[in-house]
Design a protein around this nucleic acid. Structure first.
Lengths: 184, 184
DNA sequence: ACGGGTTGTGCAACTAGTTGCACAATAAGG
DNA sequence: CCTTATTGTGCAACTAGTTGCACAACCCGT
């Protein structure tokens, strides 16, 4: 039940069209709440029907077809309510950890390549986050808003740091092909 | 597409009935792949239909009704295949990070209580993991199997450590009620 | 022996997210 | 101009996970 709230947040930060939102979900917002354009359009429709957002009157009327949305007071209120409401953490699901556990039983054959690939992906993501940090959060920040945003980014950085470290360790600990356990 | 593989792993570690599995998903396995008993029963049915597992002939026939399952060779093969296959990491979704980002826009009013609650939950989980580590992985381990299992547990420990640290930081950084930004 | 909790299994309906496709409008290239 | 690529919007069908309920059997106390 969080996609609508992710969209409300994004639209409050800046009114946008569906495609704009899609792009922003591919970068910043999507780092911790991903969504496809199909989901976004569907949800925009619902939010509009509920009176939480409305389409901005197009400046260049009907030209490019691009509809931009802005958040209405009801939408902001709903977002504030949701933010403050108690929510249980969703149960975790991590396929890689599951695969490692499976490998402990059926053997690690063939796993190494994908571990390396994931390591590389996490490294890249980490680099991207660090770039954003350098660009958008120079030392000596002030506003409460900036501090909160930085905090969220820090979470991303530290999580990716953890994964790169952990995957490196995992690769180091993988048995060499010769003495690999391979239960019958 | 991982629940069946989680179940296969669990059943290889030890043949179990649906309820046994449910309990094991509430402890160890479920720490990184949670599932409800309804999901588990449904999936057991499918796995049996596909010939990946089979019901063990009951020792005390029909007594308590309890059906135990074991993995067939086809099931083990499928698990090995899945473990080795390349898989893209699933996009993240973390409601708490989203809420923080929303709070940067609509204000942090009411958030503190739930942050504290989450902190407490993560602390408890961390304590549980550390207990397991102490009990099941005394220093000087040997088998490749134990090393892999320990590695997975370490991931859990380090993730919970991160979250407790991060939430503590977040709470410390929260503006006091007086000077809280509260956009109109 | 009977009423109430616990154990164990399962179906049905719903919700959220994913995948695959469609199609109009405009921009870009020959 | 005419075609092709890109931009922008959206529907439909499917998959995975969640919630709510049902119900038989056994176990325990009175």
């Amino acid at each position: 039940m969080s996609l609508p709230h992710a969209i409300l947040t994004a639209l409050l930060e800046r009114p946008s069209s569906g495609l704009d939102l899609t792009r922003r979900f591919d970068r910043s917002i999507g780092y911790f709440w991903s969504a496809t354009h199909q989901q976004i359009y569907r949800e925009l429709g619902r939010l509009e029907a509920e009176g939480h957002i409305r389409a901005l009157p197009a400046e260049q009327p009907a030209r490019g077809q691009k509809k931009a949305y802005e958040v209405l007071p009801a939408g902001r209120a709903e977002l504030a309510r949701w933010t403050a409401a108690a929510q249980d953490p969703k149960p975790h699901r991590d396929a890689m950890l599951l695969r490692l556990r499976a490998a402990a039983v059926v053997g690690t054959a063939g796993l190494e390549a994908d571990l390396r690939r994931h390591l590389e992906l996490h490294r890249r993501q980490l680099a991207e986050y660090e770039e954003i940090e350098e660009r958008d959060f120079p030392p000596g920040e002030d506003s409460a808003q900036a501090r909160l945003q930085h905090l969220v980014l820090r979470a991303g950085i530290e999580l990716e740091t953890f994964w790169t470290r952990w995957l490196t360790e995992a690769l180091a600990g993988l048995p060499a092909a010769e003495d690999r356990p391979q239960e019958p």
